[in-house]
Design a protein around this nucleic acid. Structure first.
Ligand SMILES: [Mn+2]
Ligand SMILES: [Mn+2]
Ligand SMILES: [Mn+2]
Ligand SMILES: [Mn+2]
Lengths: 218, 218
DNA sequence: TCAAATATTTAGACTAATCTAAAAATATTT
DNA sequence: AAATATTTTTAGATTAGTCTAAATATTTGA
């Protein structure tokens, strides 16, 4: 049995290695876990002792098979709980992440199996992120960020890249949520901003930063 | 914010003081928390510093108002989660306690409020124990243990005193659950055992130890 | 009542997880 | 290829929570 802290480090390493493939460096882990590089080094030694990561001094780390499985299990639990919180307890997608950060550490395989069953085996969480199955496999689907499309493109919002509260609150204000249809009306080549129509209703100008974070069915 | 360990000590103190009213002694806490008396003494000092208990060396402890509120909040969370696990996830009453021991420590008032709402504000958990409301008030109802009744008495099972797995598994085997009607057919004055009829079906001899643990509507 | 038994606290040590400051290794520039 | 900057590790300290063994206080009961 791992401690909560060990679990969080494994998840952090997984998150970093998702983006930058290859070895993960100490400072990147320190940034995510909000600890010092010294603390990270300490923990890396312990995780290496337990064969959860491959660690070469000064050369960064990578997850072993068992370390990777633990990380995807945590992501599975996190996203299933988020789904539960939104679908059953009627939380907003703005608020579920923090709560799921706690719930994901509750052990018992039977709990997550029954929860999955109860929720009807959802494939995506409230932010559009795929929920890995019990074997750690993610569902892939065709999606691209909105900024890559041209004027006239209509598409359904499938997910968001960033999960910052402020971003989600901003989308709420624009009445944009998963499933909303977005149409590109105008595009500004200078700053990448675009005018979009939201569910055939209001039009809004959104910045390139926003359009890059909106994932559209493609 | 308290640590998980501090919370568990407060709950342990609450549990003991429920039975033996007055001050709670060190060894009783050590027994419940499964730690040494020395560890308990350590923790008592810390809890006293935080004004969660009143502690006089060698004289035992009692909960302050705020300590007591934290304990009843934990019991509320524990029992609501147990209810959820049985009613929604279809766990047996045998298995929910351990899981609830973890879930009860997940913070966020909004979570427990919405869970309570979602479950329809249940008043009793799967073992028949009252679920305190948000103010810490318990629902009282008329109930007595089966051993106090005489031959001919019929009654509905409202709860169990002991929550030992073996006891609950034994009741499952006898097809006794909350709501089951029990009738006393015979009583043995020598050892306190009694023959009972279960939901107008099978008859079984149960020991005094068992009948003392069955709480009947009175 | 006072000696023995029991309960509780103190002393001192250990582990996990953290920190800061300093040292060492690696990477980047000139 | 040095010099400099950056990254990472080590050293040493701290806190929460735990333990065992020893000391002390309280209770029991002869
Ligand atoms: Mn999340
Ligand atoms: Mn999510
Ligand atoms: Mn329980
Ligand atoms: Mn219960």
């Amino acid at each position: 049995m791992l401690t909560r802290t060990e679990e969080n480090y494994l998840k952090a390493i997984y998150k970093v290695s998702e983006k930058e493939n290859g070895r993960v460096n100490t400072n990147a882990i320190a940034a995510i876990t909000e600890t010092s590089a010294a603390s990270v080094t300490d923990m890396l030694k312990r995780l290496a002792d337990k064969d959860l990561i491959l660690y070469k001094k000064y050369k960064g780390v990578s997850l072993t098979k068992s370390g990777s499985k633990i990380a995807t299990d945590l992501i599975r639990k996190h996203r299933l709980w988020e789904y539960f919180l939104v679908e059953k307890l009627e939380f907003s997608w703005v608020d579920v992440h923090e709560i799921a950060e706690e719930l994901e550490h509750v052990p018992f395989d039977s709990l997550i199996d029954r929860l999955d069953e109860y929720l009807g085996h959802p494939k995506f969480d409230p932010h559009g992120d795929p929920i890995p199955n019990a074997e750690g496999k993610f569902t892939i689907r065709a999606q691209r960020s909105l900024d890559g499309f041209d004027i006239g493109k209509k598409g359904i919002l499938l997910g968001v890249k960033e999960h910052h509260k402020d971003f989600l609150i901003y989308l709420n204000k624009l009445q944009i949520s998963l499933g909303t249809e977005l149409e590109i009306l105008e595009k500004n080549n200078y700053d990448g901003s675009m005018m979009i129509k939201i569910d055939n209703n209001a039009s809004h100008l959104i910045s390139e930063k926003v359009s890059k974070n909106l994932l559209i069915k493609s």
